[in-house]
């Protein structure tokens, strides 16, 4: 309340750092936290979508026909060679354009595509290429006799995936997947380029409005860093859980 009063009396540019970062409307803290929330939302969505694409892609690259294998190889190579910024612009423009053309072709009205959905879709496709490679490597690291044994028992492919392949590859995949999660949280910043209101874009707006560039960019940096460090703690736990009962990687060699 007090911050609100001070903020109302003194112009924003002249007031102190804490007034600028206050959660109440004259301060921008609430906006920053909302930006962080939508960044985390996009990161979670894109990561999940990327994992689904990755599992399908890894299966396709390992067990698919020659054409599927080559096309997936092309997908991962191209996505990993072209900057995310360019991909985001391409997929953002082309994707929304394509959806609207399909809608018109089927006699519907064109829709204004939700920024959140577009962001998740675009970053998910980028993440999918990386997780395809991570998961492919992890599946290849499983002692292949385990998969052969499951097939010999007559397990159908779905059950094999759920009971054998996914749990057995997890310890090999987790370092790579953890890295991908950290990349996903940082790649959400790129959506600021297409004007989506995530943390970086919100920060730029706040900094531009108040001219307190250092304050806001440092605050946003602290939020990103907190997210990374928090993720690291969770990742360490998940890794310990996934490694449960398996020998250390150095001992399996």
């Amino acid at each position: 309340m007090e911050a609100k009063l001070i903020g109302a009396i003194i112009p924003a540019a002249a007031s102190g750092i804490f007034d600028l970062l206050a959660l109440e409307p004259p301060g921008w803290g609430g906006n920053l936290l909302r930006g962080l929330l939508s960044s985390v939302q996009i990161a979670l969505g894109a990561y999940g979508l990327g994992l689904l694409i990755g599992i399908g892609g890894a299966y396709g690259r390992l067990y698919g026909g020659p054409v599927v294998r080559d096309l997936l190889g092309l997908y991962t190579t191209v996505v990993r060679a072209v900057p995310e910024l360019v991909l985001i612009l391409m997929l953002y423009f082309a994707g929304t354009d394509l959806v609207n053309r399909i809608l018109i072709a089927f006699g519907h009205q064109p829709v204004d595509i939700n920024g959140l959905v577009a962001g998740i879709g675009v970053l998910g496709i980028v993440q999918g290429a990386y997780s395809t490679e991570v998961l492919r490597g992890a599946i290849l690291s499983i002692p292949q006799g385990q998969i052969e044994a499951a097939r010999a028992y007559g397990m159908p492919p779905g059950l094999l995936l759920r009971r054998i392949t996914l749990p057995a590859m997890l310890p090999f995949a987790i370092p790579g997947l953890a890295n991908l999660w950290l990349i996903a949280t940082k790649d959400t910043a790129l959506l600021a380029i297409v004007g989506f209101n995530e943390l970086t874009q919100t920060t730029r707006l706040a900094a531009g409005a108040t001219k307190a560039y250092f304050t806001f960019f440092l605050a946003a940096g602290a939020l990103y860093l907190a997210l990374t460090l928090f993720s690291n703690v969770i990742i360490a736990r998940v890794e310990r859980w996934a490694r449960c009962g398996t020998p250390k990687l150095s001992e399996t060699r």
Partner: peptide, 13 residues
């Protein structure tokens, strides 16, 4: 710090 924050943010800072 460098690895924990987006490059775009560092650049703008």
């Amino acid at each position: 710090i460098i690895r924990g924050t987006p490059l775009l943010l560092q650049l703008w800072l």
